[in-house]
């Protein structure tokens, strides 16, 4: 199970962030003006947390590739790159929202 969590963890973070961003964006749409700023900060904070978590996963996976566990070096290297990609994608998809507000 740890192998699969490691492999898919970064991308799962991206998915979780995406859903949260979608929910927050929808809330912004139906909330009054004074509530919009806190929601924007909430998304900014969430984005930062998810990016940091994805980077941490990437670093952890890269280190693990030196001491291969299940899945040899293939899985940790793939995990490292997937988590890095997820971190970039999280920033990318939040940019329109954060830029606008």
């Amino acid at each position: 199970m740890n192998t699969w969590l490691s492999l898919l963890g970064g991308l799962a973070l991206w998915a979780a962030h995406f859903l949260a961003a979608y929910a927050i964006a929808s809330l912004v749409d139906i909330s009054s003006y004074e509530h919009q700023a806190p929601l924007t900060w909430l998304l900014a904070g969430l984005t930062l947390a998810c990016v940091l978590a994805a980077v941490a996963l990437a670093v952890r996976a890269w280190r693990a590739s030196r001491r291969p566990g299940l899945g040899g070096v293939f899985v940790p290297r793939l995990s490292a790159l997937a988590s890095t990609l997820a971190a970039i994608a999280i920033v990318w998809q939040s940019a329109p929202f954060l830029w606008r507000h």
């Binding site: 898919l8 991206w14 995406f18 964006a25 929808s26 793939l78 990609l85």
Partner: peptide, 29 residues
């Protein structure tokens, strides 16, 4: 793997003309 995940984040790009909130549209774009 990336396609498997990211492709689930694009469903609303078929709905750009339906009056979705601007912030959502930007995210899906």
């Amino acid at each position: 793997l990336a396609t498997g995940f990211i492709s689930f984040g694009v469903w609303a790009h078929h709905m750009f003309t339906t009056g979705l909130p601007g912030v959502s549209v930007g995210m899906f774009s």
